[in-house]
Each structure stands twice: as C-alpha cells, then as structure tokens.
Design a protein around this nucleic acid. Structure first.
Ligand SMILES: [Mn+2]
Ligand SMILES: [Mn+2]
Ligand SMILES: [Mn+2]
Ligand SMILES: [Mn+2]
Lengths: 224, 224
DNA sequence: ATAAATTTTTAGACTAATCTAAAAATAATA
DNA sequence: TATTATTTTTAGATTAGTCTAAAAATTTAT
C-alpha cells in the first residue's frame, strides 16, 4: 500500500500539514523551507519526490497540499508525537517543557502495535501535556471549543486548556506564573495601550500578561 | 567530546562489539559484512570513517577492535536496547519474542535523560526479558555464572536464566514448551547419538530437546 | 617456497538529501 | 502595461551510505 517513507520525508509531510492547518491554505515552497530550515531548492527536490510517491498534490509554481495518503501519514505522526509526550510527562516525570524534542525522535519509530499498546497503557488520552488533541487510531481529532486568552472579554472567565507554542522558554514562563493546564482565569482588565491583560489566577493571584503570552494561551470559556 | 555518530555508524559499532565479544577476537571485514548484511566494500568504507572518528582501531588488512570511546558508545546502545525491551514486555505487555526489532529502532533515540528516567521507571532492572544483563549508566554489566544447557551433566539441575538467540522462532518454541525464564530443569539423560537431551521441567513434565535448542539455552547450575 | 584460495581494499557508480548561484515564472507596483 | 520585486525552479556540487567488479594483500595448501 504505502511506499517506504524516510524520516526526512515524514518531517516534510508534517511541516506541510502544519502550514495548511494553521494558515488554512496550500503550502508554498518558501513556507516549507522556512518551517524545515532548509533551502528552497531542497524543498523543490523533496516536493518532486513526495509527489512521485503520491503523498502531495504538486504542480510547479503552485503551492502544495497533502493527498489523502499524505494526510494520513502526517496524522499518524502527530498521534505518535503526542502519545510519546504524554508518556514522558505522565510516566517518566518529565516536565512539559522538556518533552517536545524527544518526541520529535520517538514519533519516527515504525511499529503500529507499539502505538496502540502505548495508547492503552496511557489510558487512551484525548489530549497531550500541552493540551493538544491526540488523534485516535483512525485519525480523528477530538474537537474542543477554545479561544485565545487574548480574545476573552473583561469579566469573563475560563480554564486554561492549551498552549499555541511549545517552546521551552514559554512553557517555563507559564510554570513560574502557575499557569498550568486547568488553571481558572478571570479577566480583570485589558489595556489597549500594549494589549496586555490583567487576570485573576484561581481566584487568588492577580497578574498582568503581555499580548504575546495571551495570544499563545488557549482557554475554554465558562459562562455565568 | 564525542563526534556526532549516525544511526548507521552506531549499528556498525554494535556489530563489532558483538563479534569481539562472542569470538573473543578482533573483527574481520567479512565478519562485519556478514553481521550487517552489507558488502565487504561497504564495510571497508565505514571502517575508514569510524577510524577517522577514533571509534575503532583500524589498520588495513588487520582486523578491527573498538577504542575506549567506541566501546562506550556500543555499551550505551546495548543498555538502551535492553531497557526498551524490558519496557515493552513489563509495561506494554509485549511477548518476549516481539520486542527485539522494535528495540532496534528505539536504541537509537538520543536523549541521555530519557535513558536514566526509563531505568528508574522500570526499577533499575539488571536483566532484560531474554536474561541478558543490562549495563548500568557507567557501562558495568552484572556478571552471572551460567552455562549452556548442553554442558550440564546427567543428574544435575538448574534454572533457565537466559537465551543465546532472540529470534522469534526460537522464543516461540520455548513458549510452547513452557521453557520460560525461571523454569527448573533437571537433566535426565543425554543421547550421544544426536546430542539431544532429556530433561524434567519444573519436576512435572519430561521432554527431549535438540542439540540446537540446548546450546541456545543458559541455565544457572544449582548444587545439592 | 610456489601456487591456490581467501580476504580485503580500490575503482567507479548510484541514490537521498542537502547546498549555492543563476535562471525562469509569477506577483506586485508604478 | 511595463517594470520591479518576490517566489520558485534548475544547474551543478557535495556528503553519507551503498553497490559490483576488479585488483591487491594475506593465508592456506601443495
Ligand atoms: Mn511537541
Ligand atoms: Mn504537544
Ligand atoms: Mn534484542
Ligand atoms: Mn534481549
């Protein structure tokens, strides 16, 4: 069925998936070269190969999109990545800011039975340590209604359910401020001067978050 | 300190380690080509590269041995391989005949902290599911006095502690016969005709094992 | 000690993945 | 629409890892 797919090819597929996901568009050569940190020329080479393998839809000078096959591969990679991150945090006691790079390696292990056993061992989690949904064996993502904290209005409150970024720096900042998943947040005030936002943390501590932070935090709005 | 070592280079180092270990000699080009399933020409190429990186002692037409550095790398790989095999069996409920190939992939994950956390999570095991010793973080192997079942004498008894081979076929055969690690074995009779051996299993069941099987089984001799 | 057999290395070529520099196509602007 | 700027592709090289066929070195046997 599927041709053999190298680790490098897998990474390109994931990059294309992310770009198409985030920007809701087809991925351009430069977008990919940017995401992969390789030259545009290398990307063009790779696009030809992926196209040959029917993993992407490619026509010169037009952007690319994933085929059904390509999309399945990318989704399985994301599934593995997030399951391993969950394992590292839940079972091996890693902190959430240290697991991404290790999962980048683990996601390439090819052993379908391993993935399913790992999933069971972890209790079939629906979200990873950063609040990102873990697709199931069929590639289905659990959908959750969430907004960026920056879009919440004064007086509203909600619970932190995810982060947009998983850089070590950002996650460590959140740890320091006690902004872990599950934290209750109430919006006290918003300052249009610099788009910073003042919040109340678990009804206890008030603090001000920068625009950048509040755009990278997902909350689930609670009414009343 | 260490140069970057590719997955392929790691596999060569492990192959050389195994050959030198088993045969107690330096490894020849053909030995390695045999173990790695690559041509002798490819091996020569690789030996030059490994030598350049000071991982092996190499002189044209002489065999090769691992340097201190090379030996350390190989030992860490074996440590990772056996820890992962233990994880797969103990935590994910894989049977012992299915874990080797997956561990061949997992052993290449580069994340020192992961290895130590995995070790702790597993309770710092000293032996893997096949009875092979797991080197500690410093590369020390636990030594255990063991003999091949084929070397035991009539009337002696012992306990199965390991296997020489981890092929799926052999391990499945052992499962079928109830010859798992920890089984008590008493030698009833030895047939010089074909070097087969008749044993009593856990004081319950008698059976005859071929020469090939008895040479691939390690027991710890018990006196009394 | 020669000759024959075996082992090992060299020569030359191929593929995947990468690069830089230059050319071509497309998009934006005047 | 013509010019300019940006994006993308091509051309030509490089490196790691592999191969086959042939040459060279070493070992074994006569
Ligand atoms: Mn991640
Ligand atoms: Mn994540
Ligand atoms: Mn193994
Ligand atoms: Mn083992």
């Amino acid at each position: 069925m599927l041709p053999n797919i190298s680790q490098t090819e897998e990474n390109y597929l994931k990059a294309i998936f992310n770009i198409c996901e985030k920007e809701e568009k087809s991925a351009g050569t430069n977008d990919i070269s940017n995401e992969m940190q390789t030259s545009a020329a290398s990307v063009t080479d790779m696009l030809k190969r992926l196209s040959e393998k029917k993993l992407i839809n490619y026509a010169k000078y037009k952007g690319v999109t994933l085929t059904k096959k390509g999309s399945e591969v990318a989704t399985q990679l994301i599934r593995k990545h997030r399951l391993w991150e969950t394992f590292l945090v839940e079972k091996l006691q890693f902190s959430w800011d240290k697991v991404h790079d290790i999962a980048e390696q683990l996601e390439h292990i090819k052993a379908p039975e391993l993935v399913e056993k790992l999933d069971d061992f972890l209790g079939n989690p629906k979200f990873d340590p950063h609040g990102d949904p873990i697709p199931d064996a069929d590639g289905k993502f659990t959908y959750r209604k969430q907004i960026q904290l920056s879009d919440a209005k004064v007086g509203e409150w909600g619970v932190v359910v995810g982060v947009q970024e998983d850089s070590e720096k950002f996650l460590q900042y959140l740890d320091k401020q006690g902004l872990v998943l599950g934290t209750r947040i109430e919006i006290i005030e918003k300052f249009s001067y610099d788009d910073s936002i003042q919040i109340l943390l678990n009804g206890e501590k008030e603090l001000v978050l920068s625009d950048k932070v509040s755009r990278n935090l997902f909350i689930q709005r609670k009414n009343n």
